[in-house]
Amino acid sequence: MNVVVLVKQIPDPANPYELVDGRLKRGVAQKVMDPGDEYGVEAALRLVDQFGGEVNVISMGPAAAMEAIRRALSMGAHKGVLVTDDALGGADALATARVLAAAIKRSEFDLVIAGVESTDGSTGVVPQMVAELLGVPQSTFAKEIEAKDSSLTIKRQTAAGYDMVECPLPAVITVTAGVNEPRYPTFKGIMQAKSKPVDTVSLGDLGLGGDDAKPTQSVDAVNPAPERGAGEKFEDDGTGAAKVADLLKQLKVI
């Protein structure tokens, strides 16, 4: 089973971020592979351990995004593709999906795995768009994955519990943070990563032009969410429970 994992290099979420004209300033901050992508890499490695095949890591981003690919390679992935092109600066979800789909189509694949959403952009729609562009089924929010011959069954996380979803391969799935416990890179993996094949390609190499990379959405402004005000405090003088119940009724909670 050949599995593609989509990964993204993002500013370390542990550090404070900075916005410039509504866009995340990416130049200076310490960068890491999106922690959500580690689950995808782990899931892919497990499938390949079980069924054979290769894990191909694909990323779109500036040259520094190679670090995310390297991280996946040192965890055990077999090869990588980095799509990097100045024309891609500011690409939105659809442009990103076009590029990723074109990069995925360059080689045979049985399954594409992505995180539910990136930790920095958080649009949560790129994998679905990729599936549409590839013309394959999509199955999202996987918290458990089971593969058989030419189909896949996932437990799809929902607000109430989970759905069992079966789909034929090839397919695109997204995985939640609870799907597995991602492995650390190993010392051997780090040493081997440098000799694994990684293609660096431009838009032109993928047969795409500048128009494909143009954003169809524009962001006018990004503002931090308003801080939550202090809640209402009830001193319990014997009537506390009744007061809380009244408030909940007012809010139509009960």
Binding site: Y184, I190, K194
Partner: peptide, 12 residues
């Protein structure tokens, strides 16, 4: 580079 990555791994 690999040795720096190794030390980063230990830190992680």
């Amino acid at each position: 580079v690999e040795q720096r990555h190794l030390i980063d791994l230990v830190r992680e």
